[in-house]
């Protein structure tokens, strides 16, 4: 898994993940979120365009982050999921818990 980060519109921290998110690398993903939140970031967008697979270890990290951001009046937005990853969110009932957008543009605009 590779992660890259950038800031858009001076308020949105965008994380691009590339590869598989499982119990091996979920802690690394959590650290990336920790670093954004400890630097004061409260609006985070995760672009899933290059994510081929996510297990519950990754879902737990996202759940924990959304909870932390809500307490800071921020939010976590997810976008550009492929059907396999979206199915995992559906199975876990997680589509109801997250703001999921088709494109990064949409997630920035809403």
């Amino acid at each position: 898994m590779n992660i890259s980060k950038r800031v858009e519109n001076s308020q949105f921290n965008i994380i691009n993940i590339n590869g598989h998110v499982d119990a091996t690398n979920a802690p690394q993903l959590e650290k990336e979120f920790d670093s954004i939140i400890s630097d004061g970031g409260s609006k985070i967008i995760v672009n899933f365009r290059d994510v081929e697979y996510i297990s519950s270890a990754g879902l737990r990290v996202l759940l924990s982050v959304t909870q932390r951001l809500k307490s800071k009046d921020g939010d976590l937005r997810l976008c550009e999921m492929n059907p396999t990853v979206e199915k995992t969110f559906n199975l876990a009932g997680f589509t109801r818990l997250f703001d999921i957008f088709k494109s990064e543009q949409e997630s920035l605009a809403n």
Binding site: S56, L59, L63, S64, T88, L91, A92, L97
Partner: peptide, 22 residues
């Protein structure tokens, strides 16, 4: 319960719930 899951953060059992759903 997914609403409870979000409210409490890190309730266990998600892995087994997924296995049973899959």
């Amino acid at each position: 319960d997914m609403k409870e899951y979000l409210a409490q953060m890190r309730v266990g059992g998600l892995g087994i719930y997924l296995i049973k759903s899959l």
